[in-house]
Amino acid sequence: MILNTSKLKGPAAAIAMTLMALSPIGSASPLGNDPIRLVIPFGPGGGSDITARVLSATAPEFCGPRIDVVSMSGAAGLEAVNFVRNAPANGHTLLVSDYGPVVTSGFVDSVSWNHDDWQPVMNFTEWLPTVYTRPDHPIQSIEDWVAAARANPGTVTFGHAAPLGLVHLPLILFEAETGLENIHVPTSGGGETRSLIMGGHLDLGMTLPASIAAEVASGQLTAIGVFSDERSSVLPDTPTFREAGYEVSLPAWLMVFATRDVPKETIEHLQDCFMEALASPTAIAMSNRINAGITPLNSADSTVLYQATVESIGTILRSIGEIN
């Protein structure tokens, strides 16, 4: 195993190992020995959880204290956001989120904070929304889709998770760009979208590359197109919508946020040790194993990306009349 546990024989050693992972490691660090909490605004077991676990497994060595991933999906993720917001500003409580609960919620929900109250510490990865279908479906490419939607407007059914989420907004943007009409069918999440597509109940769906890469490789699903500037590294054969001639690109990301009032030195320390941890061979091996495509960005670059996203999501929401 990656962490050299093969040297440890017997359950006793492994239990000791587990307890070590679960208990504070005493080492000097400006953060002290209190554990760091990475709060995710989603349920356990999803892509954000899995990605955050790579950090929680590798970073304690570099950052000092133990790191826990805490899942708070209450109030559609707003509870997690509020928990981090109300925690002491000492860098021990961080939010790991995509743009939904921070950027979109900041616009459409009545929240007590604004977008400037969040300070990106680091960005894990870029997530590229991908349109897919089953291989025996008549639509097998962006061109097929556009042709079908032109021939019979409002007949192609399109499954996506939560309305206005990161696998729905690109569709809205694409329709605004092309004037096409599809039937939007919200589902309870990626799993439901996929089973409805595989069962023949829906035509198309949108998801993130990592969750369908294996099925696309084995020919169980077809990835039609990616809403990004460049192709996805895990789906190298899938064209972008830009390649097909549509200027629609809306990649998402997974960022670690602190609140604005966390001291600058703390944020820098966290950024440094997170980046160092993710650059370690262990973390790279883990990232490859889970297909997460982790390519960390530092705090400054993440902030630029964050502000650009606030800008573009704001524009989309204004154009569809969700906000003024």
Binding site: G43, P44, G45, G46, D49, I50, R53, G191, R194, S195, M198, A214, E215, S218, Q220, M286, R289, I290, N291
Partner: peptide, 27 residues
């Protein structure tokens, strides 16, 4: 059969497989 997590438990087992480098699904 399809890599689809049908329940919270299945999602967690799926995450465990992924973390061990095993992709849930027919393969």
């Amino acid at each position: 059969a399809f890599g689809i997590p049908g329940s919270a438990t299945a999602a967690l087992f799926g995450a465990a497989f992924i973390l061990m480098g095993m992709t849930p699904g027919p393969r």
